[in-house]
Structure formats: structure tokens, C-alpha cells
């Protein structure tokens, strides 16, 4: 006999694809990496999504350190400097009260993003919970919850937001609440659809067969596996929430002066568009850039979180 010793017939086997038409190649010996790190790694290979994430990180950092970054206070009025075009002293120019627009854009980021995150946070938590319960339990739970969602969905979004603000009064917090309520049915639907698929997976049944409670099934198996579309929806909804905040502020229902908010600044700049374009242009660009980046990130996540795409990209990038 030559060669290496023969492994015993029932020995542990290392390696690949012995089941039918599956498992490509020698992935078996790759060390385990947490999924989120793999996701980040894959995202980094998608240039648009990577740039978008970097820009968003920049915007968030800007919002956090706004006080330090802003050259002036948001409400520092200086009448002699009113309506100055962009210059070294005021890179984005000044408005009709002589306030520095760069400072107001920087400080407005905080307001816009806070409202956006808060609104999506409300919608995400409540919507996902409703979708999770409706999708998992089905039957009358599904019927009741989703009919309520349909009613909410059927209501024109702006009207609903205006109604909430009319009842609770304007302001950032209430704006976030209003937008959040409008977005609940979207998250409920996305979650429900995803849960309906995951619920039928054999591994959920397998987990039930060893005695796992519904709570455990929902938190350990169903939600994590149903998460990808919800994550994508979150990113895209953030874009829309920033936009919605701008729209409501524009209508005078959101953030109240003199607090800076991009939407509000846009509204205020409207009157001067023919003599001082920079009043509306820079807040508009800020909105545009943020919304675009959230959308691009959403698209990138959609690709990365799709298991089929994942395999292809993971293989291709070796």
C-alpha cells in the first residue's frame, strides 16, 4: 500500500458539495466571518454604494459636530451683511437677515437628520412589529392588522401628516411623529411579505420541533432572516423622510423659524430666487445629496443582501 492512510469510512469529512447540485467549490475551509462584516466588505466593493456611505457618514458627523463646525451661530443676524453672494467670508453666501448660509446648512443637517431618523425609527419599530405578527400568525391577526394598515395607507400621506400636525401643533418632534405614522404601513407590508416567506422555511419548523417558543422563533430565526428587505426599505425611507420633512417645513408645518432646517431654508429662499439664488440652492443641494446617497446605499444593500448576488460577488472577488 502506498500513499496516505485511508480515512475510516464514517470519518469526519472536510470539503465540498456532496449533496445534489449544490454547494459550489471549496468554501468549506474558509474561516467563519460574521455576516455584518461580510456585508460591509461586499458593500465596499460596490463603488457607488461605498461613496454614498462615505458621504452619509460625513453628513452624520457634520450633524453631530455642528456647533464646532459652523463658523457662525444659526441666528446671528448681521443686517449689513444681508444677501451677500458666496465669498471666502461666507462660502455659501448670506440670507436676507445676513445669516451665514453655510452655518445654517450645517446646523440644519442635525434638524433634518434627527427628524428623518426619528420618523423612520418610529415607522420601523411599529411597522416591523405589526408586519412580523401579521405575517407570522396569519389568520385573523393578519386580517385585522393589515386592514388597519390598508386604511392608513389609503389616506393621502401629506393630508395625514397635516392632520397629525394640526392636532399636535407644528415642531420637529411632531413632524417626525407625523412622518413616522405615514410610513408605518410601508414597513408593515415589507416585513409581512418577507416574513411570509421565512415562516415556511424548514429551519423554522426545525426550531419549533426542538421546543422553541414563538418569541424565540420570531427573534432568533424569523426576524434576522426577514431583515434584508427591511434594511433596504429603511435606507430608502430615510431619503423620503428627509424629503418629507423638507416639504412639511416648506409648507410651514414642520420646523419653525428661526430654527434652521433644510426644507424651511428652501421655503424662505424661494422669495429671493431671482436676486439671490444661493439662498435656495445650497439647502436644496444638501437635501439632494442626502436623499441620493440614502437611495444609492439602499440599492447597494439590496444587491449585497441578496443571497444569490452574495455568492457571486464573494466568489468573484477572491
Amino acid at each position: 500500500m502506498t500513499g496516505a492512510p485511508v480515512p475510516p469510512p464514517d470519518a469526519p469529512v472536510a470539503g465540498q458539495g456532496d449533496a445534489k447540485g449544490t454547494s459550489p467549490g471549496p468554501t468549506a475551509l474558509r474561516p467563519a466571518r460574521p455576516r455584518w462584516r461580510e456585508t460591509l466588505g461586499l458593500l465596499a466593493r460596490n463603488p457607488t454604494a461605498a461613496v454614498a456611505s462615505l458621504v452619509l457618514v460625513g453628513i452624520v458627523l457634520m450633524a453631530i459636530f455642528d456647533e464646532t463646525l459652523a463658523p457662525q451661530g444659526p441666528s446671528e443676524v448681521s443686517v449689513q451683511d444681508r444677501l451677500q453672494s458666496p465669498s471666502w467670508a461666507h462660502p455659501f453666501g448670506t440670507d436676507d437677515l445676513g445669516r451665514d448660509i453655510l452655518s445654517r446648512v450645517i446646523l440644519g443637517a442635525g434638524v433634518s437628520l434627527r427628524v428623518g431618523f426619528l420618523a423612520v425609527g418610529i415607522a420601523l419599530v411599529i411597522g416591523t412589529l405589526i408586519g412580523l405578527l401579521a405575517g407570522f400568525y396569519g389568520r385573523w391577526v393578519d386580517d385585522v392588522l393589515m386592514r388597519v394598515m390598508d386604511m392608513l395607507f389609503a389616506f393621502p400621506a401629506v393630508l395625514l401628516a397635516i392632520a397629525v400636525l394640526a392636532v399636535r401643533g407644528p415642531g420637529s418632534g411632531n413632524t417626525a411623529l407625523a412622518i413616522g405614522i405615514v410610513y408605518i404601513p410601508i414597513f408593515a407590508r415589507v416585513t409581512r411579505a418577507s416574513v411570509l416567506g421565512v415562516r415556511e422555511e424548514v429551519y423554522v419548523r426545525a426550531s419549533r420541533s426542538v421546543g422553541a417558543s414563538d418569541f424565540r422563533l420570531l427573534t432568533r430565526h424569523v426576524l434576522p432572516n426577514a431583515a434584508p428587505p427591511i434594511i433596504v426599505q429603511t435606507s430608502i425611507s430615510l431619503a423620503f423622510a428627509v424629503l418629507a420633512e423638507a416639504a412639511l417645513s416648506f409648507l410651514g408645518l414642520g420646523t419653525q423659524p428661526p430654527n434652521p432646517s433644510w426644507g424651511l431654508m428652501l421655503a424662505e429662499g424661494r422669495g429671493f430666487i431671482d436676486i439671490a439664488w444661493w439662498l435656495a440652492f445650497f439647502p436644496g443641494m444638501a437635501i439632494f445629496l442626502t436623499v441620493l446617497c440614502f437611495n444609492l446605499l439602499g440599492d447597494g444593500l439590496r444587491d449585497v443582501l441578496d443571497p444569490r448576488q452574495r455568492t457571486l460577488m464573494a466568489g468573484g472577488g477572491r
Binding site: 419548523r205 426550531s207 420541533s209 432572516n225
Partner: peptide
């Protein structure tokens, strides 16, 4: 009962949660 009686499923690709070690 679930502790005292277990089950092995058909499709080994579907019966394990892909997100759990």
C-alpha cells in the same frame, strides 16, 4: 414532548438557519 422527541428533516440546505453558526 419536544425535548423527548426530535426530528431530522429532508433538505439539509433548508433545515439549518443560514444566519446561525
Amino acid at each position: 414532548l419536544r425535548r423527548r422527541a426530535g426530528m431530522v428533516f429532508q433538505d439539509p440546505f433548508a433545515s439549518l438557519d443560514p444566519r446561525r453558526t
